[in-house]
Design a protein around this nucleic acid. Structure first.
Lengths: 237, 237
DNA sequence: AAGCAAAAAATCGTATACAATCTAGGCGTC
DNA sequence: GACGCCTAGATTGTATACGATTTTTTGCTT
């Protein structure tokens, strides 16, 4: 619920109602991996699906392209983004670069209520890992990201929060493409350790754990360049 | 020249020619402060100005709103963004958070050619400070940002590069609104010091200087809340 | 049957049209 | 003269229309 529409607004008064809704729906579908990288998103289809004109569908796709979740190719249309191994590396490099800083700012402003909230998220995440079925798996993916997003919220910096929204969403894409282990459930305990370190006011340790955690996620990816990638057209549909 | 259109593309194949052009033109105008915060940007006006339909004008404005440079209010239109003091603080907080990291990555990959390029930028910047006239002033503003952007380019991370583009542009808005000293020319020597520290492989010192530099820029702003800000309508046009 | 060329269909790029909403000015009342 | 209401104009929100580009299909040739 925290992340249902928790992306771009902040103080966003814009919210072209229709567009916003479509954008969030598609974003969620991408992040939860109901839409695979490379899937074509035709403007007409999206429009029909939401009972809205191509104009709005196009606007939504355009918006998603600014977040790096879909790539639009001139005269060819929009596709769910298909990050290259290099792009994937950059996504995680960016996270290593900003998340320790966010963590520090968050720790400086954190309240007992925030800590309770974080633990709540952890509990929820743990519960989902226990369950089985696709629905639970998808919820787990989202929950895993929500932890990092929650820290950004606590940090109180709306700009960093939006940036993290983008990074977490794009991470999900990279994992969908290059992830090896079935799920990144491995990372759950690491989230808990980070909270503990924050509670103990051991920021250096918390940051160390955070960096380790991100590296751990990335290590589960197989980012070796696929050689036959020249005919990327084949992948696009 | 490095920054002429040096913002959003990277591997951007999209480039709806018309929209892209309009967006860059308006962005430049905002960054160079030819457009003041709060200025109304009507879709028809923008369209006419670029001999293009409202459709494309709207798309360009929408794009700029994703970068935080214009704010669009439902049923009211688009305005050059008018960042609140709090927003301004967050912009600089974000820069303090990411720029040391970018600097470290850049330093790790920097080549002699890159260093020559940085010094070239410094020279150009120094030259502009010497000149007088509005044109020179505007060029100076842009040059000052270009230094930070160049570091992001050298870091080789396209995602951080795009983020820095946004932060530098928004900084320019904050300075335009709250800046006190005529120009931030004060910061020029600091840029030089940073390059020197990089050359000396003294990364800790370089980061220290960078943080100091950003704080210095922010310190020149008067971010006291204006009390009569309730009737923000008055400020909007 | 495979390959290629041209035509047909689908899809995108952009402009225009119409409805909904907001803004401004005028008029009347108090 | 000030306040409120109402109409006229301007501006945005969304849909539709049409030309351009790409993709697919068809049908012919080898």
């Amino acid at each position: 619920m925290t992340s249902a529409s928790g992306a771009t607004q902040a103080a966003d008064d814009s919210a072209e109602t229709g567009t916003q809704q479509i954008r969030d729906a598609i974003r969620d579908a991408i992040v939860e991996r109901r839409l695979s990288p490379g899937t074509k998103l035709s403007e007409s289809d999206v429009g029909n699906l939401f009972n809205v004109s191509r104009t709005l569908a196009r606007a939504a796709l355009q918006a998603l392209s600014y977040e790096g979740l879909v790539s639009v190719e001139k005269n060819r249309g929009a596709f769910v983004a298909y990050p290259s191994p290099e792009e994937a590396r950059q996504i995680f490099a960016a996270r290593r670069l900003v998340e320790p800083g966010i963590l520090r700012e968050a720790a400086a402003r954190i309240t007992p209520a925030d800590i309770r909230h974080l633990k709540q998220l952890l509990l929820e995440e743990g519960r989902l890992i226990g369950e089985r079925g696709q629905t639970a798996r998808r919820a787990e993916i989202k929950a895993s990201g929500d932890f990092h997003l929650a820290l950004a919220v606590i940090s109180g910096n709306a700009i960093m929060q939006r940036f993290m929204d983008e990074l977490v969403a794009r991470s999900s894409l990279a994992i969908a493409l290059y992830g090896q282990s079935t799920v990144s459930s491995c990372g759950h305990s690491e989230h808990g350790d980070i909270v503990t370190a924050i509670e103990n006011k051991d920021l250096d340790e918390a940051c160390r754990l955070m960096l380790h955690h991100i590296t751990h996620i990335e290590a589960d990816l197989d980012l070796r360049q696929r050689k036959d990638l020249g005919l990327k057209e084949a992948l696009k549909r």
